[in-house]
Computed example of a mutant assay.
Amino acid sequence: MELATRDSGPVRIITVQDPRIDAAVAIQFKDRMRDHITGGPARIVLDLSQVSFVDSSGLGAIVAAMKQTGEGQVLELAGLTRNVAKVFALTRLDGVFTIHPSVSAIEGRADAG
């Protein structure tokens, strides 16, 4: 499970560089997310634009990552592919997370703020 992290102003962007978040990588994903979230800024954005498949274990891992955020931190999502967006809608997790169409939309707002 490969994650890339970069800070863009007041936002830490964590990009998943694998096409799947499923049972095979869910525990590794949670562990790596904890490493990238700890000590980060208030806004953490998980870029899922390269992810084409998420199963129930993957959803659980993403929710676990949200719960790993520290006080004053928030985990937002960006760049959901069509299939991943459908899973979030079917499970109603699209109402739990703030979801942005793309990372570039966030960076434009961060620069303006």
Rank of each mutant, 00 (worst) to 15 (best):
21 I>A: 11
29 F>D: 06
96 V>W: 02
97 F>K: 08
42 A>V: 10
95 G>F: 00
43 R>S: 14
17 Q>T: 07
35 D>W: 00
88 F>L: 09
6 R>K: 12
15 T>A: 14
89 A>D: 13
84 V>C: 10
86 K>S: 15
98 T>L: 12
98 T>G: 09
98 T>W: 04
60 G>V: 02
68 Q>L: 14
72 G>K: 04
25 V>R: 09
67 K>C: 01
58 G>K: 06
69 T>G: 12
20 R>T: 12
70 G>E: 15
25 V>I: 14
14 I>K: 04
1 M>N: 12
52 S>V: 05
19 P>F: 06
29 F>W: 13
104 S>M: 03
110 A>H: 02
23 A>V: 05
21 I>V: 15
113 G>I: 01
8 S>Y: 15
64 A>I: 05
102 S>H: 03
113 G>R: 05
80 L>W: 01
21 I>E: 09
7 D>Q: 15
87 V>Y: 00
17 Q>F: 00
1 M>S: 13
35 D>K: 14
12 R>E: 09
35 D>E: 14
17 Q>M: 12
34 R>P: 00
27 I>F: 09
105 A>Y: 02
105 A>H: 09
15 T>N: 01
86 K>A: 15
3 L>F: 11
76 E>L: 07
80 L>S: 02
104 S>A: 13
41 P>E: 01
96 V>H: 02
8 S>R: 13
62 I>C: 06
82 R>S: 11
